[in-house]
Amino acid sequence: MLAFVVQRVLATIPVMGVVAFVVFLLLRLSPGDPAAVIAGDYATAEQVERIRAQLGLNLPIYSQFFTWLGQILRGDLGVSIFSNLPVTTLIAQRIEPTLMLALTTIVFSIVVAVPLGVLAAWKANSWIDRAVMMFAVIGFSVPVFVLGYFLIYGFALGLNWFPVQGYRSPFDSPAAFLHHIALPTLTLSAIFIALIARITRATVLEVLSEDYIRTARAKGQSERKVLFRHALKNAAVPIVTVIGLGVALLIGGVVVTESVFNIPGLGRLVVDAILKRDYPIIQGLILFFSFIYIVLNLLIDIAYTLLDPRIRY
């Protein structure tokens, strides 16, 4: 087991290297000169050139890459071109709301979707099943921002149950945090509930026709335990896979949701940085998200071996 984890961790190193290279190249090759942007509309060619030299943009591209790589390895993601603050500081400032929103979304989605999916599989082709699947189709099809504004209109403006926008830290006030995070979580969860419920239904349905389910019933096991003890654990691998993929997709949804609910998180940082062509921030964030994604994949792989004793690498 330990050997497996070590092996997987080692395997992520080249992946990170490739990611770093691609991120670096992608931005250098995209049009637009940040030096010109910083210098402003009325700058002379000399001024632009001076700024370029300051940023190291006049060096050959490979030496820019290795300088940058060396910095990352020391935990230095560079300095924002516009605010002059270190990128790590900027990320640290903004990470909490994003992390919290992602966390509440994932927990809420799993807690709602897995039982729904199991229920739909158990009652396959009944009205319950059809209702769950209809909800899944709606969850898939409604765009995040439409659902967000719809919920704000109904529950914040109409019923006045929740605040329209903003964020409170759970470390200051857990109640205020929950109050503020409820609608964003609901908004962002819809699509994941739909996704996870569908996969859960499909895999549990398949597992329910297996022989060992009949064996469990032949032992006199109750339906509830047949479903959750026997069926769900066997269906776990595809469900965990889709949850892991869901977390990765979450990053895109977070950007939109943070804009709708005016939450000062990483999503907003990304949007602002792209609009200003603030290379260090963009690079830093892509690297940061890639790192999270790789760690996530590692966790999923480890989860497989815990869930299914037949899986050994």
């Binding site: 297996e210 022989d211 060992y212 009949r214 064996t215 469990a216 019933r217 032949a218 032992k219 006199g220 096991q221 109750s222 026997h230 654990k233 066997n234 776990a236 869930l307 299914d308 004793p309 037949r310």
Partner: peptide, 24 residues
């Protein structure tokens, strides 16, 4: 019936490969 199954009457099946839960 559940109370009788496994207790007063029991059943074994054809495929011991698939009749046992693979993750238990």
């Amino acid at each position: 019936l559940r109370a009788l199954r496994g207790h007063r009457m029991a059943m074994i099946f054809q495929e011991p490969m698939t009749a046992l839960n693979p993750v238990m």
